Simulated assay, not measured.
Amino acid sequence: METHKESTPQWKTTIIVSTSLRNHETHRMLSAQQHRIRCSDSLESGTFIFPLSGTAFLLVDPEDLPEPLEGSGLIERINKFVQVHRNSFLLLYAPFNRQKELEVLALIQNRFFGSNLKILPVRSNAELVKGILTIAKATSKPHVDKIRDRMSLARAHIIESSPVWEMLRDML
């Protein structure tokens, strides 16, 4: 007896990572999921780039930052990253229970408020990998087109079945 199990094929993509992440746990986790990983010496340390979705992620671990924070070069490093990558995310790796982690978060939020930088606090490597893959998949072709189509269908359905829209149509 043959059984067929319906399953969605696992999403796989190419990821360009800085060579500084070659021995990082996230590199191993992404490889285990069979993503194509290319290392590059020309990328800022701690960078993941998803070419098909146009997203870039910069990993910052507050434990790796020297004191005082203002002299650590962190703001300059993030500023350069934001200027180079239009769709940029900062992965702030920390359990957020120590004063230094909160200071780093506040410093970054204050400095980059209103910029195109999105800050993603992550507590573990598993959370980090899940977050970057979710964002990259949702913003890459053909997935972004499917999401757009579903949103259009949902919008059309809401408009068709909304009593407010019916009342507005009747008024015109």
Rank of each mutant, 00 (worst) to 15 (best):
A56G: 15
M171L: 10
R98D: 15
Q99N: 11
L102S: 08
S140G: 11
I108C: 05
R22K: 12
A56D: 06
A94I: 05
W11Y: 12
E25R: 06
I158Y: 14
E6H: 00
Q109I: 03
L90E: 02
I78L: 11
K137F: 09
F112D: 05
S40W: 04
L92G: 01
L30K: 04
L59T: 06
E44G: 07
H35M: 12
R86D: 08
G73V: 09
V164E: 10
I147Q: 06
R98P: 01
S162V: 11
L21R: 02
M1G: 14
G73E: 07
F96I: 05
E103W: 02
A56V: 05
K12C: 10
D149R: 15
P62D: 03
R77E: 06
A106H: 12
S42V: 13
V82Y: 04
P68M: 03
V144H: 08
N79W: 01
Y93S: 09
I135P: 02
L117R: 03
F89N: 05
G114E: 07
S161A: 10
S115E: 06
E127L: 05
N97A: 11
R77W: 01
E63P: 00
Q10S: 13
E103H: 11
K5E: 06
L120R: 06
L65Q: 04
N79Q: 11
S161Q: 14
A126V: 08
I158Q: 14
S140V: 13
L172I: 03
R98S: 14
E103N: 12
T47C: 09
W165H: 10
A154Y: 10
E6S: 00
M29S: 01
L74F: 07
R150C: 13
F96Y: 13
L52F: 14
G73C: 10
A106Y: 13
L107D: 01
I75L: 13
P163K: 05
T47F: 08
L105C: 09
R169K: 07
M151S: 12
F81A: 01
S152I: 14
D64T: 12
R86T: 10
A94M: 08
E76G: 02
E44Q: 15
I119W: 05
S88A: 14
L43F: 09
T19C: 03
R77Q: 11
A106K: 13
S115N: 06
D170V: 00
H27L: 01
D41H: 11
T55H: 09
Q109L: 12
P121K: 03
A156M: 14
R38I: 15
P66I: 15
S115T: 14
P68E: 02
I159W: 12
M1N: 10
L43G: 04
I132S: 03
V17M: 13
L90P: 01
A156Y: 11
P121V: 07
I119T: 07
S161T: 15
K130V: 09
T3P: 00
S42M: 11
H27G: 00
K80R: 14
N116Y: 08
Q83C: 09
M171Y: 02
R123H: 12
F113K: 09
P121S: 11
P9I: 03
S20I: 01
E101D: 15
L69Y: 01
I158R: 15
A138D: 09
E67I: 04
H143D: 07
I75K: 04
Q109W: 02
K12E: 12
R86Y: 12
S140R: 08
E166P: 00
A32C: 01
L21A: 03
L117V: 08
L117N: 02
Q33V: 01
Y93H: 11
A106I: 10
K146Q: 13
W11P: 03
